[in-house]
Simulated assay, not measured.
Amino acid sequence: MRIAILPDDATIGKVAADLIEELYREKPNAVLGLATGSSPLSIYRELIERHQAGKLSFKEGKAFMLDEYVGIAADHPERYRNVIHTEIASHVDFPEGCVNGPDGNAEDLHAACAAYDQSIKDAGGVDLQILGIGSDGHIAFNEPGESLTCRTHVGVLTEQTRRDNARFFDGDIDQVPTHCVTQGLGTIMDARRLVLVAQGKGKARAIKELVEGAVSAKWPATIMQMHQDAWVLVDEEAASELELSDYYREVWEKSR
């Protein structure tokens, strides 16, 4: 696992975008894994700028989203398909139909989950997966206690996650859906590279557990310790509880 403690959100976005630009330069038809939430927004802003400057194209690529709410209206602004369209897909040149997400309104949700996993495999797998992390250590919507090897599945959102996400629903937790469809930890771990980003003091405990804690379903993101190519990009506040921060800084500087 490579740990980078960076000065601010903008720098996190640039470092992550560098990795994505390098990927598409080497493999123009790469498959990108997209995350929602506030954490990856600086990445998307940077990718859009580079695309508009003519330095980066997704015209041969595909993308897969991590998760989706169950039962949310198709035109709701917080439906993750709509969020991804607003934040990045509508601003770059992914071909029509090449940005895919789980179907949270399918008649048979379990069949839709299996089909989504298969569609990722049929595309050749995800080359680089962008990830955020919840304050309780969840990635995608894999809540504490989930299987560390599960595939795309229907999940129950904890009160903590719904409380964290209420800011996107006028601060009203009752508007936040109670269920989701999410890539499982096993599905996420199939990606060839993982890039997790985190900002702010509220993520400090989760980052400490991710980087320095034991691998445990109590902190789902810790499964990333078992990945052969995982990157963790954090700001100073998110890194504030790391005990070996000096070591991570030295390794990062000497490996660039």
Rank of each mutant, 00 (worst) to 15 (best):
L109M: 10
M224S: 09
A230S: 15
L41W: 01
I223T: 08
E78N: 14
H179D: 09
V215T: 14
D8G: 06
T36P: 09
G97D: 05
A73F: 03
D103E: 14
V232W: 01
R25Y: 10
D190W: 00
A30T: 11
G145T: 04
N165H: 05
S135E: 13
P102N: 10
D229H: 10
V215Q: 07
D172L: 05
L233P: 02
D229E: 12
G134A: 05
A74V: 12
L109K: 14
S39K: 02
A4P: 00
A123C: 05
D9Q: 10
A238P: 03
E96L: 11
L56N: 02
N100T: 09
I120C: 02
Q225W: 06
A106H: 12
L233M: 08
S216A: 10
H179C: 09
G104N: 04
E236N: 13
G101F: 13
K218L: 08
V215C: 06
V234C: 03
D170N: 14
L196G: 03
G184D: 06
D136I: 00
I84P: 00
D108W: 08
S38A: 14
K121L: 14
G125C: 03
L242T: 04
E26R: 15
R256A: 11
Y248Q: 03
L47N: 01
K218Q: 10
P177G: 11
D18V: 00
K27C: 10
H138T: 02
L131F: 07
K203F: 09
A10H: 13
T36G: 06
E146A: 14
T152K: 07
S135T: 13
L185K: 00
R2S: 12
I3M: 10
L242A: 04
H138F: 02
D75A: 09
E49S: 15
E146S: 15
C180N: 14
Q129W: 10
G213H: 02
A35M: 06
R162Q: 11
A30H: 08
T149H: 12
I223N: 03
L196C: 08
L109F: 05
R256Q: 13
L131Y: 05
Y80L: 11
V83H: 04
Q183R: 08
A73Q: 12
A166W: 01
P220F: 09
D172R: 06
I84Q: 02
A204P: 13
P144C: 07
W219N: 03
